[in-house]
């Protein structure tokens, strides 16, 4: 099917980063993002150092140097929500706009804040991209299990991962069927008013729900047939060894050092 690979961002390679324990990678990614949030506004050098770390890790993972950069555009739309930060802090006035009753004063402090928010966000998303492009999602699920996520939630996530492509394909088939039945392209607002169009979409959602519900019945039977009785058992081979612990300690020290450095 057309959408088999679209959700998988894993890049199969054999690198040091790929071979790291997924548990360690998850912890490191979260630590990295945590420390981004702790860095003060305008700590440009520290931000640059962190990007340097991402570049280095990308190269170690045998990815192109701009791989994470290219994919990080996904956070751009949300930058809109941060735009008002430009006008939120007192400081040296750079410009003033009058928007109806709203007076927008652009200050240097506001600009600094806005830029820092974007940088933090952009660095964080790159590290998340690095994580999923060097770790298969089933390994990430195992890591979550090791990190004491409730078994129930881990299981739901595993099922979601298994069936998101299957059900997305079904959704796309429904969409295609709608398209082939409508005389005009949907973008051209053919075929009825808003209410009618919404109802068509709602019927499709209902249909998809029923198919999914029936599928869950069949899956349940398949599980019963193989000995499931309400208690799920899994083998989870990932263990943390000394090397992983050392790496964690080292990264923690580096990140702590960077926090001090940023405040010097």
């Amino acid at each position: 099917m057309a959408h088999q690979n679209i959700f998988d961002q894993y890049k199969a390679e054999n690198s040091v980063i790929h071979r790291l324990s997924p548990i360690v990678k998850v912890v490191l990614a979260v630590l990295f993002i945590f420390s981004n949030a702790l860095l003060p506004d305008g700590a440009w050098l520290s931000f640059a150092l962190k990007w340097g770390a991402i570049l280095m890790l990308s190269l170690l993972a045998k990815l192109e140097w701009h791989y994470t950069l290219k994919r990080s555009v996904i956070v751009l739309p949300f930058a809109l929500a941060g735009i008002s930060a430009l006008f939120s802090l007192p400081g040296k006035t750079l410009a003033i706009w009058q928007l109806g009753s709203l007076e927008l004063i652009l200050t240097d402090a506001g600009l600094l804040r806005f830029e820092s928010i974007l940088l933090r966000s952009w660095l964080s998303v790159q590290v998340a991209i690095l994580l999923v492009s060097t770790t298969t999602f089933p390994d990430l699920i195992h890591a979550l299990e090791h990190l004491r996520l409730p078994k129930m939630l881990v299981t739901v996530i595993a099922f979601l991962y298994r069936y998101m492509t299957v059900l997305s394909d079904e959704a796309l088939r429904l969409l295609r069927a709608r398209q082939s039945r409508s005389a005009l392209l949907p973008e051209q607002r053919g075929g009825g008013n808003l209410l009618w169009r919404a109802r068509t979409a709602g019927n499709m959602v209902g249909q998809l729900f029923l198919r999914s519900y029936e599928r869950s019945d069949r899956i349940y039977y398949a599980m019963l047939s193989r000995g499931y009785s309400g208690h799920l058992r899994t083998l989870n081979p990932h263990n943390i060894n000394i090397r992983d612990w050392l790496l964690l300690m080292l990264s923690f020290l580096l990140i702590t050092f960077l926090q001090f450095f940023a405040r010097l």
Binding site: M152, T155, V156, I157, A158, F159, L160, R162, Y163, M164, V166, L167, S168, E170, A171, L172, L174, L175, P186, E187, R189, L194, R197, A198, T200, A201, M204, V205, L208, F209, S212, Y213, R215, S216, I219, Y220, M223, Y228, S229, G230, L232
Partner: peptide
């Protein structure tokens, strides 16, 4: 956890359903 054992595959498939249903869009304006 206290619900019946069918709940596990049901919730799993329903999560995939919600994920897929978010793709079903309709033109507004």
């Amino acid at each position: 956890e206290n619900l019946d054992e069918k709940q596990v595959p049901l919730m799993g498939v329903m999560a995939a359903f919600i994920f897929a249903a978010q793709m079903i869009n309709f033109p507004v304006a």
